[in-house]
Design a protein around this nucleic acid. Structure first.
Lengths: 246, 246
DNA sequence: AAGTGGTCTAGACCACTTG
DNA sequence: AAGTGGTCTAGACCACTTG
């Protein structure tokens, strides 16, 4: 029984249709598992598989003890990548605050600072030798208290020691403004964008189901002479839209 | 038992660790379900759940009758978005051919041309009235004969009538070169990037499993005066990496 | 207290692949 | 023919939410 059509796929398709036709509207509850077991005359596991698939597609949210609900599509967070501009820095906003300023949501972030030897991947990206000390700023960012973005930034330690970059709050304009103060103004940003699925720890931190679509961005900041930062970003793929002007 | 830790999650984490530590290498087979049932002393469904999660993460591929195998990560197709440049057009390459030139893969595409009344979405993007005639170029693009990109381009019909843009092969430099010939040289491209999961028809055309991560790009081309094209792109999220210089 | 989702058991059967 | 993955049955128990 491993051709395309299976019972749980049929049930999932049936429920998906009901949602798409608007018979169950966003925010409303689907029939309970018991009701679905009765309606389709199948075992509990079969219904569970169907609902699990709809959850993975992001069509429903399930709340233990409460029910399965059609997801309300949250507003999209637009993020224009021309934002990394001197104008925004001059206005005292870092990149994330700059996004928030363009949208109308309230930003917040939790930052953890640590010092690590550069991994092969980081050393390669920053043009350092493996094992050289780097400063890591591990940030989880919230929009209206919903976690939406994970950013793990790495900088050569020699550039950050004694600056506010090593503090959770680097001050107005963010770390790029502090780099500029130190004579390392980033002039160019290279962003490498991929789509992927959330790993278990990422899903946990971002409050997504495992396997939910995410945007993965590797951003490399460069002065006119050297690489100063590599930042690994993971964004909720369904809530974020990146805007690039080419 | 609905806190984070469950048996199937523990088993998935265990196998994920073995893969990440390289104990099971890409292409190699995981223990069979029977072996895992024995090893962990659990029911078949529990092991099935764990493997299902790893599959959703894209870590393994399962082949009925054969086994579960660690996925080989296919080579990444880099695509630099500064490619939409006059230089590339002058060299006689369209955007897709330009990507191919930068990578070392062989491009091919299947193009279907049709004329349609503008949908609300397209009309909105192009600043036209709904229902106005637009030319649609529906293309499926292949790299080394593997389908990797879907591009559905819409242009106001008045700009394309009588030009090679209405032919499957628009000639050297692609449609942007033809627009330039007609006095509508695109000067600015706005790209809006999201991550999502492949719908059933998209998965079918791109040869992906339904729900696989994809990159969705809406690209709007503008001359100094007007909007000339809106292009909806869907890319295999795991094979493509977009490169933007900001 | 009753209902709900999530997980688990211990089997069963089927389509498919491999030797 | 034997082994494999995928699905299914018919229950069970637990944590949680709701009235």
């Amino acid at each position: 029984m491993s051709d395309g059509r299976t019972t749980w796929r049929d049930i999932a398709a049936d429920l998906r249709g009901a949602i798409e036709r608007g018979e169950v509207r966003p925010g409303e509850q689907l029939p309970t598992q018991s009701q679905l077991i009765q309606r389709y005359g199948v075992a509990s596991q079969t219904v569970a598989n169907a609902l699990s698939a709809l959850r993975a597609e992001g069509l429903i949210r399930s709340r233990t003890g409460s029910g399965h609900f059609v997801r309300e599509r949250p507003p999209i967070l637009r993020s224009t990548r021309s934002r990394l501009s001197a104008a925004e820095r001059a206005a005292g906003r870092g990149t994330f605050l700059s996004d928030a300023h363009a949208g109308d949501w309230t930003p917040r972030s939790e930052t953890e600072i640590r010092v690590e030897p550069a991994s092969a991947r980081v050393a390669d990206a920053l043009g350092l030798d493996e094992g050289v000390e780097v400063l890591v700023r591990d940030r989880l960012m919230f929009a209206d208290d919903v976690p939406v973005q994970l950013a793990i930034s790495h900088l050569p330690r020699e550039l950050t020691v004694g600056t506010r970059i090593e503090e959770p709050d680097p001050g107005p304009g963010g770390i790029y403004a502090r780099l500029e103060d130190a004579g390392y103004a980033p002039l160019r940003f290279d962003e490498y964008v991929r789509a992927g699925t959330a790993s278990a720890p990422e899903a946990d931190r971002l409050g997504l189901p495992t396997g939910a679509p995410v945007l993965r961005i590797t951003r490399i900041a460069t002065t006119d002479e050297r690489l100063v930062e590599v930042n690994f970003l993971v964004l909720d793929g369904e809530r974020f839209e990146l805007h690039y002007i080419v």
